[in-house]
Amino acid sequence: MDLQTLLQQMINGITLGSTYALIALGYTMVYGIIKLINFAHGDVYMLGAFVGLAVVLMGANIWLAIFVAMLACLCVAVTIERVAYRPLRSSIRLAPLISSIGVSIFLQTLMTLLKGPQPVGFPQVVTNTIYTVGLVKISTVQIIILVVAAVLMIGLQLVIKRTKMGKAMRATSEDLRTASLMGINVNAVISFTFALGAVMAAAGGVLVGMYFNSVFPLMGVMAGLKAFCAAVVGGIGSVPGAVLGGLFLGVAEVLGVAAGLGSYRDAIAFGLLILVLLFRPSGLLGQPEQRKV
């Protein structure tokens, strides 16, 4: 593979990876706080894509579509948390996991009923020009994805590091019970975390819908699983880790395909996952788990 191809593939990989990263953020934040693998998250992403599509079809531009999708998904995610996870918070660890699988099945079937199983095309909302930068070609849509993803991730980092709510989130993820004893409204913090994750996923959904030009009810399954892997590779619970993991997975996948291993592509992603876990059990940027005696 020559340099030009390599660079071109890197651009493709980074674009793909940044959409993974947007979804992965939701997984990682929720896991960081209540140690739940939220299986319905991939489906929130799918809902985001559908809402964005509906708004675009009403004639709005892409920015409004992203905004409305974010609002809608925020409401959905907070409702899901309230109905399906909160009653289970003090029970065994696997209970909310099963509950989230139930929610996921529900959402997928609901959307299949409402919208049909066929992928729906996304109208062309931005004129797609291809720019040549040095050796590589990059399209308007790719630039939009990269910029939106970067802005959202920086925004998220600011929220977590600079605001009071962010401080409360960090405290809660450190120790939920202590945080609640210190006067933090843990329920509000958890709802807020779900809301933040959903906002990121919704943006990811609309962007992916626009980039790949298709939206369908099962789109959240594989994307969700990959994003979850990205979160684990980066170190689950760590926000920069999710971003790094997403990009890492995206690039690795694209390079794997480019190397002619297309049919083993999923195996590459999961093989990497296992390797990372074996050598750094807590992920690239995760804090090592301490075994308390």
Binding site: A84, P87, L88, S90, G102, F106, T109, L113
Partner: peptide, 25 residues
């Protein structure tokens, strides 16, 4: 009919909330 899997999903959530440690937990 069409609502089958929606009911299945709801059933899973409901049973979990109702018996958080499992039916015979």
């Amino acid at each position: 009919a069409e609502y089958r899997m929606m009911m299945y999903g709801t059933l899973m959530v409901a049973m979990m909330i109702f018996r958080p440690r499992g039916l015979l937990g």
